[in-house]
Amino acid sequence: MSLLRAVARRVATGLVVWWAAATAAYLALLAAPGDTVDSIVGDGADTPQIRAQIIAEWGLDRPAVGQYLDYLWRLAGGDLGRSYLRQRPVAEVIGEQLAPTATLAVTAAGLGVLLAVTVAVGTAGRRRRWPRRVSSGVELLLVSTPSFLIGIVLLSVLSFRYGLFPVAGDQGPAALVLPAVTLALPIAGLLAQVLRDGLDRAWDEPFVLTARARGVRERTVLLRHALRHALLPAVTLAGWLFGILLGGAVIVEQVFGRPGLGQVTLNAVTSKDMPVVLAVVTLSAAGYVVVNTAADLTYLLVDPRLRRS
């Protein structure tokens, strides 16, 4: 069946993407200044004996190619290795930080999509000239503002001044509101632009005229006919959305002092904690592949013309 073939092809491409990402990350960290042994020693005792012991234990004396192949092999077997910095299995480190980040990302994505659809449907069409100009301007502003700035503005107004939400931490749903909004706003801005553009284009299509000539309400035409057409280009952005969420989480978690993958990644990069960085890259690549495959399948779901027997 063609659907299975499509998925198989996606997975095969995904493996190549994953390999390329893992290799690129490996090379980048290899080229970065600083010694691996220094990272592992960290703040601990530093004697030649200890250094020799570390080199022997981690196999750092072997040629770089050997280390690289060994790393790939272990990764393929599902072994993410041990963190240099924390001296614990990477899977454990990431596992306990994954939940807060996932909660944040899913909430932000849902909020962003909801906002975008509402705004786009509310402002599409020729008659609503002013609301659309205003929202278009706000969207542009949100897309072009760095998320840490949005976060700081939200914090200083809603938390410091009015005390509506906690300033930092991960205690309860109230603490999730501001980080999620910070992450959701740029997403909503871009998605709303794409969706409205799609709605406007669909509105000019002959089948919309046909639907209106049937006596269907304009709002119904917009939701039932135009929105599905407008969603197609938006689905293409799913991969971009995933990237924004991942990159945004790193910054937002920092600004709001939330635990999560962002914090872990940031620490790992600054301290050259190779296994953790590589694990994050691997997970991200896998995430991309999953999200893009899902987007392709969504296409098939939305557009019957692509379903070929």
């Binding site: 299509e205 002959p206 089948f207 005229l209 046909t210 639907a211 209106r212 000539a213 049937r214 006596g215 039932r224 006919h225 599905r228 057409h229 939305v302 557009d303 019957p304 013309r305």
Partner: peptide, 21 residues
Amino acid sequence: VRGRLAGLVTQDALVALDPLR
């Protein structure tokens, strides 16, 4: 009025039906 008093058969049948429905 539309569809009830006056029915409109729109131009170009090839694109006048919503392809997603």
